[in-house]
């Protein structure tokens, strides 16, 4: 098997992985700090993508679009937190699932109302077009490399934020004992809004970055949301480290599985049965990995507080 193909697919897997990390980090923070399951996180991803595409089309600048995506997603997150999510923190998970499911309907249909049913297209910024030669004779798109770098930079930044700043200290304190930090005089309502908006901004960034690779359309967030849930469950809900490693694992396993599993099966079983089985198995692969991990580690790999 050519090394170039393997390297290329490994990078594709990494790129998917860091994208998933941007989504999963917000989800896992929101769950860890507020104990909330947010199904509407995929909608914030979509909001980011639409904001970026609309502003980029209007101003002609991808970079302004990127700023807009962060701002729009964070604002949407803050508004939703203040109006709806805030009332759900002391409810059980069932109510949270229903309310955020309802939010998905509102966001999706609202976006369709504003932008119509046709997908929008977002161009890769001119500075990042083209491909670079990597060692091993691989030509890889610059934009995808940039996404990997942005994702890694966000991971480092998030780690610094959580472990080195006052806000991070409060977030960690909120994870371990929310009543105590309230008693110590921290304004917990504002803290929750900030955490939610931060998670939303990360989702919006992910949506904007991916928007230039795929089309920007209603419903784009939900498949990613499901993958992000797989990621945080594998990593252990509430753990940023778990989300990072889980995201890379899911990204790489999914990408590599889709390319190499059918080939492997073809070598073992012959081409005809492999063609039908390979497709099914490779789409199921990450769910099989997740079920396997949960069967042996019921709280994920890096469960917070475990």
């Amino acid at each position: 098997m050519p090394t170039a193909l393997i390297i290329e697919q490994l990078l594709n897997g990494l790129q998917l992985g860091v994208m998933l990390f941007l989504m999963a980090a917000g989800l896992t923070l929101i769950f860890g700090v507020m104990g909330l399951i947010n199904l509407a996180h995929g909608s914030l991803y979509m909001v980011g993508a639409f904001a970026c595409a609309a502003v980029a089309a209007w101003t002609g600048s991808f970079w302004l679009g990127l700023v807009a995506s962060l701002a729009a997603a964070a604002a949407a997150g803050a508004i939703v937190e203040v109006t709806v999510i805030r009332r759900l923190y002391d409810r059980d998970h069932l109510d949270q699932v229903l309310a955020t499911f309802a939010l998905i309907l509102v966001f999706s249909e609202g976006t369709r109302w504003l932008f119509g049913s046709f997908p929008l297209y977002l161009d890769i910024p001119p500075a990042l077009t083209g491909a670079v030669a990597l060692p091993g004779g691989v030509f890889y798109p610059v934009y995808r490399l940039a996404i990997i770098l942005v994702g890694l930079a966000v991971a480092v930044g998030l780690w610094l934020l959580i472990s080195r700043t006052r806000l991070g200290m409060r977030i960690r304190a909120g994870e371990s004992d929310r009543e105590m930090i309230g008693a110590l005089g921290v304004d917990i309502r504002t803290l929750y809004t900030v955490v939610f908006a931060l998670g939303a901004a990360l989702a919006g960034l992910a949506g904007a970055l991916v928007g230039a690779l795929q089309s920007v359309q209603v419903g784009m967030g939900e498949p990613v949301l499901i993958l992000a849930f797989v990621v945080i469950v594998i990593g252990g809900i509430g753990s940023i480290k778990g989300a990072f490693l889980g995201a890379l694992l899911v990204g790489v396993v999914d990408t590599m599985g889709r390319i190499f599993l059918p080939q492997l099966l073809a070598a073992l079983l012959g081409p005809a049965p492999a063609a039908s089985l390979g497709g099914a198995l490779s789409s199921m692969l990450i769910y099989i990995v997740m079920a396997g991990i949960l069967a042996f580690r019921p709280r994920g790999l890096f469960a917070a507080g475990a």
Binding site: F31, I37, H93, V97, I226, F229, V230, V233, I237, M284, Y287, I288, M290, A291, L294, P298, R299, G300
Partner: peptide, 16 residues
């Protein structure tokens, strides 16, 4: 599993 993990693992099986 229990709690959120149960929600997610049943989702994963359904997706499979």
């Amino acid at each position: 599993t229990s709690g959120v993990y149960f929600i997610m693992i049943t989702l994963a099986f359904a997706q499979m």
